[in-house]
Simulated scan of single mutants.
Amino acid sequence: MSDRVGILNSEIHVNKNRLGKNTVWREIKRHKGLIGLAVPGLLFVIVFQYLPMFGLVLAFKDFNFGKGIWGSDWVGLNNFKFFFTSDAALQVTRNTILLNLGFIFITNVVSISFALMLFELSRKAVKLYQTTLFFPYFLSWVVVSYVTYALLNPQLGVINNVLRQFGFTDINWYMEAKYWPIILSLAYLWKNVGYSTLIFYTGLMGIDKSYYEAAAIDGASKWQQVRNISLPLTMPLIILITLLQVGKIFYSDFGMFYFLTADSGALYATTDVIDTYVYRALRVSGDIGMATAIGLYQSLVGFVLVITVNFIVRKVNKENAIF
């Protein structure tokens, strides 16, 4: 009797496996068009995101071009020790976190506000304002750095000329580190607010109009509609965008921090971030192992931050969490 039960169970297991395989192939054939469209994107991610991860072994090696990646000497955590024991480690980590937190907060608040205002305008007006806001996003930081220099030039800059007209003394902007957190925040906001506004505006466009019609019939004001309809229904998108930004909080826009500040050593106290520090260290010493170690450090911390923030969001509202 037990033998028959065992044989029956094995046959059932085999039939389930065959059924599962047939179902998978059936679904593949059914959605072959969509899968074909996804293949180039998947190949791009695999080639440029996953295959380079094998190079992370360089973080634990003293890389030598003659010996190659696998032949270079193993040094363990020495590359990490070089960064964490340096005098600039705390400074660049602090600047990276605080500046990026400021960018995230300011850009999201202003972008959501602009998106709510655009949502109340006519379609023709929206196109005009969208184009105006979105245009700076396409400008290179090299171009923006020249515009900034024209404004902040110590002798001929527009801002210093205005200060002279009001009786104030000139400011050597590229030697005064205390002003640059504000300058960088304004520059980042000006360049990225259009892109973020477009994302949040798209989220608002997806809200069912019947909610607003019902609220208007009940006598709700525009502010009440924003507070009770627009913001709550856009909150999942806001949280998603914020989580993605928090995951990259240890990464900085290298072009902005390097070109906008003209790599002035006098500004390092408030503008030197991990990316610019690694670039200078790599340019001077050519230590690829140390640069890889810091890159791995950035990725791991970003991963931990995403998991942590998502866990907090999940505890507050499970539906708004990514996973």
Score class of each variant (00 low, 15 high):
157 G>D: 06
27 E>L: 15
178 K>D: 07
307 I>P: 00
193 V>E: 05
234 T>G: 00
68 G>W: 01
217 I>T: 01
63 F>Y: 15
153 N>V: 03
66 G>R: 01
96 T>M: 03
78 N>A: 07
277 Y>R: 11
187 A>S: 06
47 V>E: 04
29 K>I: 01
80 F>I: 04
175 M>S: 15
89 A>F: 14
231 L>Y: 12
183 I>R: 12
13 H>F: 15
41 G>D: 03
148 T>G: 10
11 E>T: 15
251 Y>A: 04
298 Q>W: 07
234 T>D: 01
29 K>H: 05
135 F>W: 04
72 S>E: 01
168 F>M: 14
110 V>M: 07
139 L>D: 00
258 Y>Q: 03
281 A>N: 14
144 V>N: 00
269 A>W: 12
8 L>K: 14
157 G>T: 08
227 R>Y: 02
282 L>T: 06
234 T>E: 09
271 T>L: 03
45 V>P: 01
295 G>T: 07
241 I>F: 08
235 M>L: 15
5 V>E: 13
253 D>I: 15
122 S>I: 10
12 I>G: 14
148 T>R: 01
107 T>L: 10
44 F>G: 04
297 Y>D: 12
187 A>K: 02
290 M>V: 08
119 F>K: 09
273 V>K: 05
139 L>V: 01
85 T>P: 00
282 L>N: 10
264 S>R: 15
218 D>S: 09
50 Y>K: 11
31 H>V: 07
137 Y>P: 08
48 F>D: 14
202 T>H: 10
315 K>I: 05
166 F>E: 00
163 L>S: 07
102 G>D: 02
18 R>D: 08
258 Y>F: 11
280 R>V: 04
148 T>V: 10
108 N>W: 03
57 V>L: 14
205 M>W: 03
290 M>S: 01
204 L>N: 14
122 S>P: 04
261 T>M: 05
314 R>V: 05
205 M>Q: 13
25 W>T: 08
170 D>K: 08
277 Y>D: 05
85 T>K: 00
